[in-house]
Simulated scan of single mutants.
Amino acid sequence: MLLELIQGTEGGGLIIIQDSINYSGRHLLMSFINAALKRDEVVHLLAFELHEEDLKHELDHSCFQRLTFHNAFQDPLGWNEQPPFTVHQFITKELDSLLTPTHLSKPVTLVIDSFSWILRHLSPPSVCKTLQRLKKGGAVKTTLGLLHSDMHHRNMVGSICHLATSVVTLVPGHQCHEAVAKTIRRAKSGTISQAEERFSFNEDMSVKVQSQPIQVGAPQTDAGDAEVDPTANLTFNLRLSHQERKAKEKLALPFVFSKEKKSALLHSGPGSGRILYEPDANDDYDQEDPDDDLDI
Results as ranks from 00 to 15, higher is better:
H27Q: 07
N71V: 01
R245N: 07
H61L: 06
V216G: 07
E4I: 01
V87P: 03
F236C: 10
H61E: 09
M30I: 06
Y285D: 07
P125F: 04
D291W: 15
V216N: 11
L119P: 03
D150V: 03
Q243R: 02
D280H: 13
P213S: 12
S114L: 10
F199D: 02
R26C: 08
H44L: 12
Q18H: 04
P107S: 15
F64P: 04
L50H: 13
L98R: 11
Q89P: 13
G271T: 02
L104I: 12
L5K: 01
L50K: 01
I214K: 07
P125E: 02
F32W: 06
A36F: 03
Y23P: 00
V167R: 01
V209F: 10
T109V: 13
D40E: 12
A181E: 02
Q89W: 12
E196T: 08
L119H: 06
V180M: 14
S114Q: 14
H148L: 08
K106N: 10
T86V: 05
E227Q: 11
P125Y: 11
V207S: 07
E10T: 07
N71A: 02
E10K: 04
S105W: 10
A232Q: 11
P213G: 09
R239G: 04
K182W: 12
P124S: 07
T165I: 06
L104P: 10
C161S: 05
A72N: 05
K38Y: 15
F32I: 03
I112E: 11
D289A: 13
V167E: 06
P124A: 04
L170H: 02
S268D: 09
E260D: 14
L147G: 05
H152P: 05
L110H: 15
I275V: 14
A264L: 09
D293S: 15
H51T: 15
S166K: 08
L28N: 09
